[in-house]
């Protein structure tokens, strides 16, 4: 059996010290990593005060089919009206969706004949003397809710 010399002991000690040091460094690293992430709840407070940009609504087709001439004309009129006229107007429509959006939805859902009738009906109802109890008031939009039914 080989005798253990002092040099062996020193070597063993140094080896042990390296292991202990290695473990200690890792523990400190993981402890720091565990503490640092979100003590202040940064992920929760980061998204506050996001600015909301107002953009004029655009025509959205209900089907994947290519637009026919009538749809193209209606869509273009709607987009031009929303971008250049409605955007400069006072918010005068009392309903949500607005009369132009309602008209597009009515034409999409009911077809040309009924859609046109629906549009005229809506335009005749859109004024400041509407009966409050006939519509639901949407507080977020500050308008009366009147979808195409």
């Amino acid at each position: 059996m080989k005798a253990i010399t002092i040099t062996d002991w020193i070597n063993r000690f140094l080896h042990l010290r390296t292991i202990v040091l290695f473990i200690f460094v890792h523990c400190v690293f993981f402890a720091a990593k565990a503490q640092s992430p979100d003590y202040y709840g940064i992920s929760e407070i980061k998204g506050l005060f996001e600015a909301h940009e107002h953009k004029a609504p655009k025509y959205k087709s209900e089907s994947n089919k290519p637009k026919n001439e009538f749809e193209f004309l209606t869509a273009s009129s709607f987009n031009v009206y929303k971008a250049f006229l409605s955007s400069q107007d006072n918010p005068s429509c009392v309903f949500h969706p607005s009369c132009s959006e309602y008209s597009v939805q009515a034409l999409q859902q009911k077809g040309l004949f009924l859609g046109t009738l629906y549009t005229f009906d809506r335009l005749s109802r859109c004024h400041r003397f509407i009966k409050n109890d006939q519509y639901i008031f949407d507080p977020s939009k500050q308008r009366y809710y009147d979808p195409v039914r």
């Binding site: 640092s36 003590y39 202040y40 940064i42 407070i45 980061k46 005060f49 600015a51 909301h52």
Partner: peptide
């Protein structure tokens, strides 16, 4: 509101640099 958002983001960056790191 855009300026406000920007100012707030800078404050949060300052918090991240000075308080978290």
């Amino acid at each position: 509101s855009h300026e406000r958002e920007e100012a707030y983001q800078k404050i949060i960056e300052l918090v991240e640099t000075n308080l978290i790191q």
